[in-house]
Amino acid sequence: MTEFVQQFVDGLGRGGIYALLALGLALIFGVMHLVNFAHGETITVPAYVAFGISLAVGGNWWLIVPAVIVAAVLVSVATEFVAFRWVRGSSDFTMLLTSFGVHFVVVAVFVMAVSPKAKNFEKPGWIFNTVRVGGVSFEIVDLVTIGVTLATLVLTVSILRKTLFGIAIRAAAEDFDAARLMGVRSNRVIRSAFALAGFLAGVAAVFWLMRTGEAEPGAGLVPLLKGVIAAIIGGLGSLTGAVLGGFALGLAEVYLRAWLPGNLAGLTEGAVFLLIALLFIVRPQGFVTVRRAERV
């Protein structure tokens, strides 16, 4: 039981990171029908920002956290400006490959500008501390992740629900042309979606980097893939689905790891991807269905 609870918290902690990424991906998908494989760069670039700061003034996380979030927002908006703006309305094939192109260019830039090898920076001191609650010990980083993730999600949901800006994004995600007819400006709403997605990814990046403590050119790839997977599990385009998909994926990973016999533990990641492949085979449209009618 104790173990179960620990794993549950661990799973929620991971899942929160995926949920933040998936929510951003779902927002972007909603406004421009793009599955953004360059969304991982909102982790890669901040990773180097964190590394740069540690190098310059030491691992001061009071500085790193805001810098990481700002960097993520800027990166997200910049990718839209540099690349995605020009393929708006193109085929899914073209947009997908465009986002891969962005990913590869960013990777190459860091290979060139820094190094192909991973650079380490100091993790926050309290990262390995644990706290005992009723006989169960939890890692503080998990608890903080869960807390902040939930707070961020609540904040995001209230932005999307309560502010005019958020309502406009949701409207545009549902019917882009109708939103334009209501006076919503397409450039602005798409840029806003990228900015908001960048902010969410920035928060995710903070916790991801606290855990890994390293910057490498491909740093964003694995979290990105998990985010994409979570978003698709959630029915791509459904914001609630994306969040649920993220937590579900996190929990599945943790329990799978615990359940696999010791000598196969190294294959957890492989098994996760295998499960994901099976999932898409069985339920390609995800688990939250989005109303979408094709007119013929």
Binding site: I167, R170, A178, M182, G183
Partner: peptide
């Protein structure tokens, strides 16, 4: 109409 948005939200967007 924005089917997932409430009546109020539909009107708010339209008043943007």
């Amino acid at each position: 109409l924005f089917a997932d948005l409430t009546v109020q939200e539909n009107l708010l967007v339209a008043g943007i």
